[in-house]
Computed example of a mutant assay.
Amino acid sequence: MAYVVPPMDTPSVPVAGSDDRFPVRRIFCVGRNYAAHAREMGRDPDREPPFFFTKPCDAVVEDGAVIPYPPQTGNLHYEAELVVAIGSGGADIPEAEALGHVWGYALGNDLTRRDLQNAAKELSRPWDFAKGFDNSAVVGPVHPVSEVGHPTEGAIWLEVNGEEKQRGDLAEMIWTVPEVISILSQTMTLQPGDLIMTGTPAGVGKLVPGDVCTVSVDGLGSLTTTIGPRA
């Protein structure tokens, strides 16, 4: 069999402390999973069940990359996140068994064209172009569960050019990692290589060309991205 166009290479991210790579199959993102962020987006966190959106797997960007400022926006935002790397798949996963499907954890930055997202909300349209554009899923090295366990608390913060912009705690997530995995698996059969970006604390804001953006989580190190000139 021959492909009529060249098939793409498998997107992947490094495994921390190893030459191995973690293949990326799909990227799921949890919307408004920290109460303070939900409020800054004008929502009531006590009334909304979790919802999800996706990014294409080839939107993934590694630690240390310089990425071009994306087209079609004047309001690019950062969003610091904990990322869950799925190692074994399943459907209708019970919450009590969910952590057994996790291979590891990483840091993430859910880059967002906020002006496009706001326009989509106004028109009740999908967020695809606001969330799933090229280079929009910054993901650091994956730390195996065997080394870091399952982080349920600890500081998560983000700095731009050395100035802190976001700070929260993993314990502040409205929907925990086991809950997120269980609920998502009721709609999608999760597969090895899936990543789940678990939401961002309050304090999201604007990036401009030349900015250096760093995400950190206690016990998982840091993730740095530089915003280059406009594409």
Results as ranks from 00 to 15, higher is better:
G74M: 13
N135K: 10
T224I: 14
K206A: 14
G90S: 11
P56G: 01
F51E: 04
D58M: 03
D110N: 03
I27C: 00
G42W: 12
V13L: 01
G149R: 14
V142P: 02
Y34W: 13
D46A: 14
G31T: 11
Q166T: 13
D63E: 14
L195P: 04
G64V: 02
E163C: 07
H77V: 13
I27H: 00
A96I: 03
G87T: 03
A96H: 01
H150G: 13
A119C: 13
N109Y: 07
G210M: 07
G100H: 02
A38W: 00
G132L: 01
Q117V: 06
P14K: 11
I27T: 04
R39T: 13
G64R: 04
E48D: 14
A130V: 07
G42D: 15
Y34A: 12
S185I: 05
F52R: 00
V61K: 00
I181E: 07
E163S: 13
G228H: 02
G193D: 11
G154R: 14
N33F: 10
V5S: 14
T214E: 04
E179K: 14
Y78P: 02
D128M: 12
P71Q: 15
G168V: 05
T226E: 06
F52D: 03
F28T: 01
M1H: 09
R167G: 13
T176K: 05
C29Y: 05
N109M: 07
A16S: 15
Y105P: 08
A119N: 10
N161E: 08
G140M: 06
R43N: 12
H37K: 07
L170I: 14
H101N: 11
T10V: 14
A119K: 11
T176S: 13
E79M: 08
G31N: 08
P94M: 05
V5W: 15
E159V: 08
A106V: 02
G132R: 02
E147H: 05
T54D: 03
G64Q: 07
A38N: 06
P45W: 06
A65T: 05
I27W: 00
V145S: 14
D134W: 00
G162I: 10
A36M: 15
